[in-house]
Each structure stands twice: as C-alpha cells, then as structure tokens.
Design a binder for these strands. Sequence first.
DNA 1: CCTAGATCCGTCGCATACGACGCGTCGTGC
DNA 2: GCACGACGCGTCGTATGCGACGGATCTAGG
Lengths: 147, 147
Amino acid sequence: MVDAFHDAETVMAHLRALRQELLTTSMEPASDQARSGLTAPQIGLIRSLVVEGSATVTELARRLSLSHSTTSGIVDRLQARGLVSREVDASDRRYTRVRVTEPVQNYTREISQGPYARLTCALAEASPVERKAVLDGLETLRALLAR
Amino acid sequence: MVDAFHDAETVMAHLRALRQELLTTSMEPASDQARSGLTAPQIGLIRSLVVEGSATVTELARRLSLSHSTTSGIVDRLQARGLVSREVDASDRRYTRVRVTEPVQNYTREISQGPYARLTCALAEASPVERKAVLDGLETLRALLAR
DNA sequence: CCTAGATCCGTCGCATACGACGCGTCGTGC
DNA sequence: GCACGACGCGTCGTATGCGACGGATCTAGG
C-alpha cells in the first residue's frame, strides 16, 4: 500500500511534466506552429478536420477527448481568425457543421506531419523496445483506471 | 517512420484522457475533496505544505512542476478561503513564506492519503508487472523527450 | 555610498478546460 | 395538433496554466 502511494506520486509527477512538454511547450522555435501563432489544441482541431473530415462540435469534442464547451471555445477563436467556419445543417437545424476554410485546406496539407513534431521525432528515434514500453505503460495505466 | 506518427497520436490521446481522469475528475463522489470543494492542484499544494513544510512561492512551483504565476494564483484562491497564509520573510523581504493555517494543519493529516486516491487505489490493485509497465513507460517517454 | 545585476514576487492578458444552465430544434406519444 | 423529453449548441462563471512585464529587495563591485 505504501508502495502504491509512492508510485502514484511518481506517476503524477511524470504526467505533469509530460503535459508541460507536449501540450504547451510543444511548439519548437521557427516551426510552422510558432510562426502561425496557433496553439497545440487549435492545430489538433484543424488537423482533425482535414484528416477525418468536417464534423459537428460534439463530434470534434469526442475526437479530441475534450468537453463540448472547451471545443466550442477553440472553434470560436479559430473562426475569429477565419480559419474555420460554422454552418447550420439544413436537414437538422440543431447541428452545426464545422469546416476548414479553403485557404487553410491546402496549406494544412504541408504541415500535416502533425502538431506533435517533437513527440513524433522522439518516437522515430526510439528503439522498438522503448516504443513498446511507452505504449504498454500508458495502456496499462488506463486499463487500471477503467477497472 | 509512419509508425512514429501514428504512435504519437496514440500517446497524445492517452495523455489527454489520463489528464482528464486524474487531474480534473480525480475527485470521487462523497470524498473529502468533493465535500471541501477543493480542486486537485489546490489539494496538492496544501499537501506539499503539510508533508514537506512551508515554502516560498517559487519553491512550491518547483515542487509541483508548475510555473510561478500559476502557483501564485492557486495560493491566491486558497488564501481567500483562509486555508493558507502569506508572510513576508523578515530577514529577506523579497521572500514570501506560504503556510497552512492552523485549522487546516490538523484536518489535513486525516486526508493525507493524498489527492490521488483514485490512482493510488488502482496501483494498489495492480500486479507488479503492470506497475512496472506503467512506470517504465512513463520514464522511457520522458527519457526520449530529454534526448 | 551607490549603481548594476540578480532574484523573488504579484499582476496582466490570453488560451485551455470544466460543469451548469438555458435556448432552439427534432421525434415521439397522446 | 401538441406537450414533452432528448439532443445539440452557445454562454457563463471559475480554475488552471503559461509567458511577459514591472516593482521591490538584496548583493556585489566600484
């Protein structure tokens, strides 16, 4: 039991540090993201629209594992910049389809290597054993919490 | 290298989901935290003060792996509730020592099993192999990013 | 003594992130 | 037809989280 407590602290410290490195500090200097002034969540949302197609706000929230209100706020700011658009569905007026505007559609293909360049590079240089350890660890942790 | 890209998406999805489950939704129904109305970061800060002793704002930020401004904000809200106090150091007036107020000092000992009860329980029920997988995975991921 | 640098702190603006609430819209049952 | 629940959406209030800035304070060098 004492070990579990200590391990919990260790896990939380790891997760906090990872979050900082990947979600907020994920933008490398002189990268596309830094130049465009977009944040990681914003790029993730645009990428989802380009790769998986346009969707409603609730669908986007599900894709990004975010709440509906958070997603709505991100769409707000992207819409204010003219990067995405909202259109009310004609057949069912409850739905609002979110689309990427045309100029972005093309540009995004170039940077579509993803907002997680830092993480992607790190994983590319990792050995198969290391990669497996990372994925197994995260899957195991989530499985433990789901019990 | 396409694999690295796919793995990066998987890792990010895991981290997002874990963050939601542990950092924000970590408060179980009818737990001490839910009753007190405190958030996980707030409890973590108080716990650090009780377990590791009073400290300055910068020291607290280092302990919690947070930025100084974020930590200052958390202290602000705890101070507004009368749970912690700020005292200017007499010898060096630049420093502000943050302390837990007396009523909290005693109460906190009871709930000092940690704000991560959910995670602690999950780890306690995990097999040694599972625990090792979790810790190895997180350590490997951080080592990869530090390269 | 006193200027320069270093250090700590608080604050600001912004972007996430959540739950709760209310509004409009669609289907269903009466 | 029509009330009523279900659903999607936007908004509000609040908390976290960051970088950047400026103010106050100590310390070292002249």
